[in-house]
Amino acid sequence: MTKEPNEEPMDRALISSIAHSDHPIAAPVSAANLDQLLRRAKLRDGARILDLGCGEAMWTLRALELFPGSSADGVDISASALAAAAEHAEARSLGERIRLHEAGAADFRAAEPYDLVLCVGSTHAYDGLTPTLQAIRQLIRPGGLVLVGEGFWQTPPSPELEAEIGHYPDLAGLLAQAEEPGYRTVYAHTSSLDEWDEYEWSWTGTLTRWAVDHPGPDGDTALATALEHRDMWLNGYRDKLGFATLLLRHAQ
């Protein structure tokens, strides 16, 4: 594939969409553990669900299947991910129960409060966990639930690694940070090394395969991104950075 001189280079949202295409859960969480997290929400009939940074909306589509009377909104900045989400919804006969919005998570405005708000791996949209949970307080009904996924350091990182990956607390600090805005943790899942490896091998491998199949500037960009990510994972944060998905209930 060749690019015309006036074409824009690949953006990060498209690269992410390609990299996640074989692992649309888009987090180091297995399908079985995703189900376990969602089932613990025990949503009422007619529940409203919001997914901020939904990607291909696999979390929300599965929630709609587990809770037949529910409906959902999915919000993401990636047009390609939302297009894939719409296709997945139609394939699973869920198209009439989900509305997809191309927007930044922080820019979304809700007409009514939600019973469950998801923000898994997308707290950067609000500049961190604490402002994310503060903003979500305005989106949930009294007694509503939040399912948030965030990183934590399993072992203290070197200053160089922390500068590269980001500042995260340890697991105890993550829970304290999550509960400080008035939430209580009612369930949680910490991703295993196997879940991490499956996620990372899929992310880097899928993007590499796409790059090989698309020689030219886009393929070069995709391959460079995949190799850089793989090096950062294998020689940096593997078995050091953890990921926790917390089911929180606001203490009204």
Rank of each mutant, 00 (worst) to 15 (best):
L171T: 11
E228D: 15
T245E: 14
R12H: 13
A188C: 00
A47V: 09
E4F: 15
A135T: 10
F67A: 03
T208V: 00
E65N: 09
R238P: 08
Y199R: 02
G143W: 07
T208R: 14
L246N: 10
W203G: 06
G128M: 01
A27S: 15
I136E: 10
G216K: 02
P113Y: 04
M232E: 14
N6L: 15
L246K: 09
D45K: 04
W59D: 09
T204E: 10
V120T: 12
L38K: 05
L100C: 11
P169F: 05
E87G: 08
F67P: 05
P159V: 06
G55F: 06
L61C: 06
L43Q: 03
G121E: 11
L207H: 03
V186D: 07
G151R: 06
L94Q: 02
E7F: 13
G144I: 03
L241A: 08
W233Y: 12
W210D: 11
G69S: 13
S21H: 08
D35V: 04
P217E: 05
V146G: 04
L94I: 07
E195P: 11
I98A: 07
A89G: 02
I49Y: 10
Q154F: 00
I165A: 15
D127Q: 13
G216S: 08
F243Q: 01
L223Q: 15
E7D: 15
T130R: 04
G205P: 08
L50F: 11
L14Q: 14
A111Y: 12
V186M: 05
I77K: 00
R249M: 13
Q134I: 01
P9G: 10
Y114M: 09
R230P: 10
I15A: 15
A32M: 07
Q36E: 02
V146D: 01
L246M: 09
S78P: 02
I18E: 03
S93A: 12
